[in-house]
């Protein structure tokens, strides 16, 4: 019965308005607190490069391969750690991959998400990255809704670029809500 109740509650929340328009959400006229998308420049967002090792800030997923560890830095890239001696792991480099969250590898080829693109990358011995293949727009835009719930936001306009984040702002007569 508890499950039933939860689903019913879910239904009520849906009809109370997750969608932008034509829902009984009261869209206020005038100024209201909310979120607006931060758009990124496409060329910069597709720039994948090796940098000096850096500190962990917001670590995400982890991947182990051979004597190395790969730690995602949320939406920024991947830390490469030499873990031959797990008592003394050595950060060796950082791969800057805007929008990255996931990591997989086969042989010496790595697969990363780079916002909506899937990229196949090889890290060469000279500490360079070679993008072997980029499959564009194969992954969904995960950022088209702001984090959290019960918030007004400025509707996303894909013509302005890729949404890289959200910032608090004062909206005027917003038309989007979740």
């Amino acid at each position: 019965m508890k499950i039933y109740f939860c689903q019913l509650l879910a239904f009520l929340i849906v009809i109370s308005g997750c969608i932008n328009e034509d829902q009984p959400v009261a869209f206020p006229e005038g100024e209201v607190e909310g979120l607006k998308p931060i758009y990124g420049n496409l060329a910069e967002l597709k720039d994948i490069r090796i940098e000096a090792p850096r500190q962990l800030e917001r670590p995400g997923k982890i991947y182990r391969k051979g004597g190395f560890l790969y730690i995602n830095e949320l939406a920024k890239g991947v830390h490469i750690i030499d873990n031959t001696d797990p008592s003394s792991p050595e950060p060796v480099a950082f791969i800057s991959i805007p929008g990255n969250v996931d990591i997989a590898a086969k042989g010496d080829v790595f697969y990363f998400d780079n916002y909506n693109d899937l990229v196949a990358v090889r890290i060469t011995s000279g500490n360079q990255v070679e993008v072997l293949k980029r499959i564009e727009d194969v992954l969904p835009a995960g950022n088209n809704f702001p984090p959290g719930n019960d918030v007004y936001f400025e509707c996303v306009d894909a013509r302005k670029g890729v949404v890289t984040g959200w910032e608090a702002t004062i909206l005027v007569s917003p038309k989007c809500y979740r």
Partner: peptide, 28 residues
């Protein structure tokens, strides 16, 4: 409802010799 919410974080794993090993949160 979930179409508009859902958990953003996540993950995979594999034990093939030529591939690495991911945590349980993987999407790849």
């Amino acid at each position: 409802l979930l179409a508009f919410s859902g958990c953003e974080e996540s993950n995979d794993s594999m034990r093939l010799d030529s591939a690495g090993q991911a945590g349980s949160m993987a999407r790849f």
